[in-house]
Write a protein that binds this DNA or RNA. Structure first.
Length: 192
DNA sequence: CGTCTTTGACCCGCGC
DNA sequence: GCGCGGGTCAAAGACG
């Protein structure tokens, strides 16, 4: 697999979408023209039907972002979960909760470029799913953000990307397209 | 040669 | 306690 392509041409934008900014969470660039690896023949313009249906989901949710386009196809549903993590290995059983943020995306490529650099550190077969789940960590020094990428076996075009943690740095790339999408989103918060 | 992926082993929590 | 499933580590290999 290749590295992330450094070529990104999103037009500059002065503002950051409120949703992603609120979470201080990685911004998903819903734009896969940069998916240079050829898992699927990306001979089209790189849209790959991504924009047609984007969803966000997670097993447990605190925050749900949902937006239904008038055509009923631009579905954008987001959930943020909190994951308990031990801060120390010893008796400091201080479990801190890390925010989790899962995107469910209809795409033929597994890896959605969100502007950050990720290093893959694991891959596991998932039960009841013929596709493996991949584990990535942000390579920025001191940034401990992780993400998981998983394709549903129910619907092979659905890719679930789960972010965990908050980036301590900015992306190197513009987040324009995502902002455009997020501008159409509504945010619903639910408490559990 | 440095960076990143691959992949089996290992660890840990949880349910039985 | 044991087995299973999910998550991580780390050595080895691939690649630019």
């Amino acid at each position: 697999m290749e590295n992330y392509s450094p070529i990104f041409h999103y037009s500059p934008s002065p503002t950051i979408s409120s949703a992603a900014a609120a979470y201080n969470s990685p911004m998903l660039l819903i734009n896969n023209e940069l998916q240079s690896h050829n898992k699927a023949n990306t001979s089209n313009n790189g849209v790959l039907g991504l924009m047609s249906s984007v969803k966000l989901a997670a097993p447990t949710s605190d925050i749900v972002i949902n937006s239904n386009h008038s055509q009923g196809r631009s579905n954008f549903v987001g959930t943020e979960t909190h994951h308990e993590v031990k801060s120390d290995k010893k008796n400091t059983e201080k479990k801190i909760r890390k925010p989790k943020f899962a995107f469910q995306t209809r795409s033929q490529v597994d890896i959605l470029d969100d502007g950050y650099r990720w290093r893959k550190y694991g891959q596991k077969a998932v039960k009841n799913n013929k596709f493996p789940r991949s584990y990535y960590r942000c390579t920025y020094q001191g940034c401990n953000v992780k993400k998981q990428v998983q394709r549903l076996s129910k619907d092979e075009e659905i890719v679930v990307t789960t972010y965990e943690g908050m980036h301590s740095h900015a992306t190197e790339k513009s987040t324009d397209n995502f902002e455009h999408i997020l501008s159409q989103m509504q945010i619903y918060t639910t408490s559990y």
